[in-house]
Amino acid sequence: MFKKRSQQSVIDEWQRYQAQQAIACANPILQRFYQMPLTDPEVPLSEVSFMALDFETTGLDPRYNEIVSFGLVPFTLRSIRPSDGYYQVVKPKCNLSEESIAFHRITHSQVATAPPLEKVLDELLERLSGCIVVVHYQHIERPFLDLACHKLWGEHCLFPLVDTMAIEARWERRGWKNQLKETLGIQPVSIRLDDSRQRYGLPTYSAHHAKVDAMATAELFLAQVARHYSPTTAIGQLWE
């Protein structure tokens, strides 16, 4: 009972925020983004258009680090369509460190020819518009995107999204059994993308790449819905 009310307050807050942004935003791109009505939180999962999103960044802190590339893969509960996805490398303002180049397997020459984020941000928002965004670990995608918009246009860009890591935490880290384990000092299970996927029998992918991770996140979400929810679950219940 208590839980339901708290999720309801999350939903209420997002609806208020959306209404407020639709009026307040001065930037035409954000204006367009917020004038698209928010998906009704009562709509069942089976009728929602989702967009899996993944950023590769130079680090974890949006104040000092930047987006290097992003990948998008559209899907519904019925199926994922990888070939309709989108991938973009972005030129950061500062130089890429050697480590992050090795990590993302993105090269100097590739970054050199890539457009800066401001050139592709509208394209990104355009593609997200009208979809429910699904990420694994909201504390990367959400603050990086928000801060990028704020730096560029002086306005915020936040919206409800689904976080497969939060869902995993909800099922693997809560409940009295897990609490008991925690009290006993037993290591909780990992909820990283690859480890979570393994619990649902999903394959391991080799590449570390924004679009591969977006596809992997979409697959994980389908698996989570199949195991823990139902096609009739209201989308608002999963908003973060």
């Binding site: 199926s79 994922i80 070939s83 649902y200 596809m215 389908l222």
Partner: peptide
């Protein structure tokens, strides 16, 4: 083939 694939998931 690859360009036209859709992915679906079924639980056990």
């Amino acid at each position: 083939v690859v360009g036209n694939i859709e992915i679906t998931y079924f639980k056990a």
